[in-house]
Design a protein around this nucleic acid. Structure first.
Lengths: 232, 232
DNA sequence: TAGTGGTCTAGACCACGGG
DNA sequence: CCGTGGTCTAGACCACTAG
């Protein structure tokens, strides 16, 4: 584990332990350097991490402060970790598991129409369906996949099982009306609202390894985003 | 202007000029250091900027590469600059301009129910309404506001006129059905889908200066997000 | 194994905030 | 004015990629 990640964890623990809230000030960078026995840029990297995660913000000439904390029950739209972690009591039903070539526009997002694992899943939280997902994973990049894996967290399998690092993603979103077949899965009515997301994920070397279409149940899904304009 | 911003602009110009596309490699960091006569961390800061903006990605031991470019007609969900810049032929109609205290939940997001400028606007692109907006700006923080300013870009006024720096934002989103009054403004039907966003913006010193409720027309708005897990 | 990005340090100086 | 974060440099060494 990198030094700045360790320091970031320690600072986060410090915030939790001391019950700091919005606007509370952290120790100065000089103090943190002494406290954790590291150089200035290591502290800065740690604080950058916490800034990107929406936990703190820096004010030049003044200090580093704690941001307002997010609300419960909202899913992050932007983080690439997948949301299996933050869900309460999640279950996944695999509707279809096959090998096929992706149709447009997913093939465009993947920059290829090569043969992929195709997985259609319905994901639930506390028994309530919140997203219908159709994913394509190129076999060339993800050499093995199974229905059993798809019933759990595919991203955890890719990260921990295949030891591949997920680095960035492109998302294209719009709101529209549900089609009848989608509504049936999501336990809603045809014509009800939904959020449709085309999501493409890339490995650390820039290869796209997953292009998915997600359709969210409007009653069972809420989203948040905490962004920050900030360089080290 | 900061050195790393200048360098970032030059690198971006280099990408444009040489028509680099997804997967194309930039010069090495050592070469960029020589080329632009700056230290390594300045180059790294410049590349971090471009990474955060979804333009490049780094691969350890290999190089810096160009990301796929975004699609046209999509609005960024996460960038804090406001979207007046990327819209085609934008117009704004001020529906209501008043001074009042924010109701819940906006007062909670603002962490205050003090007196604010209240502005209700309908924003159009190429004549088509795409968002209905209700915003609260605390008078204590934004001392002056006018209907004329609200007809243009309020964020540009805050940045350029009031010389205040916008630093981060919290967004809470969900999809729902339109109410009759909203539908009338957006030229849709009651019960049609919409995206509802509660958006709170903060200045560089951490003060929230704007809490807004946005309701997007599902036919006239599409969104994108290009995220990246990356530290300097 | 050579080349490239990644981490980390020490230190100089700058720019801003607030008393 | 002082203290704080911000920028920038030079340089050592590490970790990974690819031929």
């Amino acid at each position: 584990m990198k030094k700045y990640e360790l320091v970031a964890d320690k600072i986060k623990a410090y915030i939790t332990k001391n019950k700091l809230h919005h606007g509370d000030k952290l120790p100065t960078i000089t103090e943190l350097m002494k406290e954790y026995q590291v150089g200035k840029s290591t502290i800065l990297q740690a604080i950058t991490l916490l800034t990107q995660r929406g936990i703190v913000y820096k004010v030049q000439g003044s200090g580093v402060f704690v941001r307002p904390t997010g609300r419960d029950g909202y899913m992050s739209l932007t983080d690439n970790a997948g949301f299996a972690h933050v869900l309460k009591d999640p279950t996944t039903e695999v509707i279809e598991f096959a090998e096929k070539r992706p149709p447009k526009p997913l093939s465009e997002y993947l920059h290829s129409d090569e043969v992929c694992y195709f997985i259609k899943r319905l994901r639930r939280q506390e028994g309530k369906p919140f997203v219908l997902e159709e994913s394509y994973y190129p076999k060339r990049i993800i050499p093995f996949m199974s229905k059993e894996i798809a019933e759990g967290s595919i991203f955890d399998y890719i990260k921990d099982g295949l030891k591949k690092e997920i680095r960035f993603s492109d998302k294209y979103m719009r709101v529209r009306k549900l089609r009848a077949d989608e509504a049936r899965y999501l336990e809603l009515e045809e014509g009800d609202p939904c959020l449709e997301v085309y999501d493409t994920f890339y490995l650390a070397n820039g290869t796209p390894f997953d292009s998915s279409k997600l359709v969210y149940n409007y009653q069972n899904s809420k989203f948040y985003d905490q962004s920050s304009d900030d360089i080290i």
